[in-house]
Nucleic acid binder design. Structure first.
Lengths: 402, 402
DNA sequence: ACTAATTTGTAAATCGGCATGACGAATAGC
DNA sequence: GCTATTCGTCATGCCGATTTACAAATTAGT
């Protein structure tokens, strides 16, 4: 019964939970974990000054966290300042681990991340998943998960949750895949197929990619738009450090934003959707190429080799993206736009026209567009880290299950 | 030093304030206020069961709130059930009041709202404000404010804050108007010109309109898109019961979403922005009418009279709005779209084509579009209520200043 | 080397705030 | 009238953070 990680914040004081002392304790435990996790080894006194509690209070909190195996005492710090040196505290390397999994069109991947953010175990398998039944794919995935879990346990870690990234729309129950065109899945509940030993979260690949960017990217703001693309074009909206999910969980469907209202018909019923200009299939067609296995690699290779058709196709896709993003930027006023996922490999040829278009359509200074450093492994890392963040956000919950 | 009302929620446990008993007390005071305010007269026991605290705890909280003048004891309730009847509690009709003000293109309005939401005093003045200097306009506004404040005090109310709605972009400091095309104002700091007796908040008219819809509308969801228009077209995005403001506070600029990327040039630098198809000036031009004083009234009148040119112009505007809203709905997945402000008067002729366009471009069931019941007085009410909500959200803050 | 100053971590006492349990008060049903 | 039920309050206790005090460990100064 853990709260889904990084849900939008609960409402105002009206409807939230009653505020009792236990809740206070829990929140303060969380603050200690966040402080230690974010700012490396820290003494009790340092934590106290950072989170605004007294040293005495922090002492008891830390005791509890150490007993739960979430924090480790590293011993006396090497001092440069006067006074008694503090004893360094760090998140435990043998505590809970976040298990992240990714179901891609042409691969499966699983990894385990410890509280400090280090990847401690991983496994993957290549091979097309398109059209295969959810059951078959998930069975293979479960095999990888067993492997990774065993590996993590071998290092003294205890899996605290599983988060699965899928290339498609996921309902707000974080269990059922409503539509995944790349896999030909519709309305499939993954809840029953995946291991049930620990809390499960299923979410859109783009969402997890955005969270990875938020947590792992350097200098990533708390308000940005994360764009990623495979066959469809997904975006994730990060507002004030949290994901915007929408009523049904479908927020971020950039692919069907109208770019040319009178353009060709789209499967969605509309006309001139972005997907028809910047979607993978559209770009391949415009470049005069056949759809093949590693589509993005093919495009990137040809573009790098100087293929003018491909470059033109990518330029045009960038322009279309620019139009759609102008709308999004006007509406959301984000601090930046980040291109992530598979898109980052094509960024060199997309970016110039995209930035041009965005700047041309913006009155003041245009919203900066950057490329994710994490690239295609963003979703997997984001998934694993989402479990870790859930632990940091409520350490008492996992401690209780220890 | 009050927190700005209804800012986006603070971050996760990492950066928030330390959690001490006083904070707990404050939050519980707020919960009591919200419960009583939302669900009419309530006994202490009823409040306790609603917010999950014990009767004893609620008793002390209520005592404090009564002493601060925020709650009133109405005496024994008329009972229908067995057992000792409870003593009804209601928000005070003599406590703090929210002062809301609106600067429109052709009018000024001010009102005072008590904690129960009733308007207790109001004043307005008609006359064009376009082109007049901020100083002159604000001086007139201050006169109205003085009037309303005096009226409120005459009824035993104590002004707790002032919120001003302006038809333009407001910086995140909630004080300076960055751009207000309808007034010809640019980068003007209203902080120094307005009365300084109580906390001040300046915000976009569309934002306050959306908040009014959220708080006063019946059955309004917690995630919706509120569209309003004067010369520009503004939208406000409500996510999980709070406003999405954007990094600079400019979120919701629907007017410059590209609708036809190759359309005519716009003042913003772009081409084919929504404003050029659905903006007031554009619609008037398309209808073959001259800009005049009461533009919206003129359009509504002609359309109602059956003027086919006007009706066509409004139909086309609705279609353009539909295209822009398709993008927005795809991106945000709101529960509904609400047409508010001056737009609501034109809704009968805009809605059909708007809904058509939105439905045509949506795969599943289209996002429902409704019209605000509050109409043009939404912004003023939203402003006044924002102050009231700030009191409900942190009663201890005003009690301290009592 | 010795002392003073400074900082850390912990222990004891205190305080604030909610829960618990008991009680008188006020009502409905019999 | 009697009982069951509900409401508001009081005394008590528990939990959690603060305050105050103190021993331990280091640097700076003489």
């Amino acid at each position: 019964m853990t709260a889904p990680p990084h849900e939008a914040h609960p409402a105002g004081p009206g409807r939230s939970l009653p505020d009792t002392q236990q809740g206070m304790r829990r929140r303060n435990l969380a603050r200690v974990m966040h402080a230690v996790s974010a700012e490396g080894p820290l003494s009790r006194a340092a934590v106290a000054s950072r989170i605004g509690l007294t040293r005495a209070a922090v002492s008891t909190l830390v005791d509890e966290l150490i007993r739960s195996g979430l924090l480790e005492e590293l011993g006396p710090q090497r001092p440069g300042r006067v006074g008694r040196p503090g004893s360094a505290l760090a998140v435990s390397g043998r505590g809970p681990a976040g298990i992240g999994a990714e179901i891609g069109v042409d691969h499966l991947a699983v990894c385990a991340v410890d509280l400090s953010g280090r990847t401690r175990s991983r496994a993957e398998r290549h091979g097309l998943n398109r059209g295969r039944s959810p059951r078959t794919v998930i069975e293979e995935l479960n095999e990888l998960i067993r492997l990774v879990v065993a590996g993590a346990e071998g290092e003294g870690l205890r899996p605290a949750g599983l988060a699965v990234a899928v290339p498609g729309l996921v309902a707000r129950d974080a269990r059922t895949v409503v539509r995944a065109p790349n896999l030909d899945w519709r309305d499939t509940d993954l809840g029953g197929l995946l291991p049930s030993g620990f809390p499960l979260t299923v979410d859109n690949e783009a969402n997890f990619g955005a969270l990875a960017e938020l947590w792992l990217g350097e200098g990533t703001p708390r308000d940005f738009l994360h764009v990623s693309a495979e066959i469809g074009i997904g975006a994730a909206v990060v507002v004030d450090g949290g994901l915007l999910r929408g009523t049904r969980g479908f927020a971020g469907e950039l692919g069907h934003v109208p770019v040319r209202p009178d353009g060709p018909e789209c499967a969605c019923g509309g006309r001139g959707c972005l997907e028809q200009y910047a979607g993978e299939e559209a770009v391949l067609r415009a470049a005069g190429l056949e759809p093949d296995e590693d589509r993005v690699g093919l495009l990137a290779g040809r573009a790098a080799a100087g293929d003018e058709d491909v470059r033109r196709a990518l330029r045009d896709a960038g322009t279309a993206l620019g139009v759609a993003l102008t709308g999004a930027v006007n509406l959301l006023d984000p601090e930046s736009v980040v291109l992530g996922g598979e898109l980052s490999a094509l960024a060199p040829w997309l970016l110039p026209s995209l930035r041009d278009e965005l700047a041309r359509r913006t009155a003041g200074p245009a919203c900066p567009v950057s490329v994710s450093r994490l690239g295609p492994q963003g979703p997997l890392l984001g998934a694993a880290h989402s479990v870790v963040r859930a632990v940091l956000d409520d350490p008492a919950a996992v401690a209780g299950r220890a």
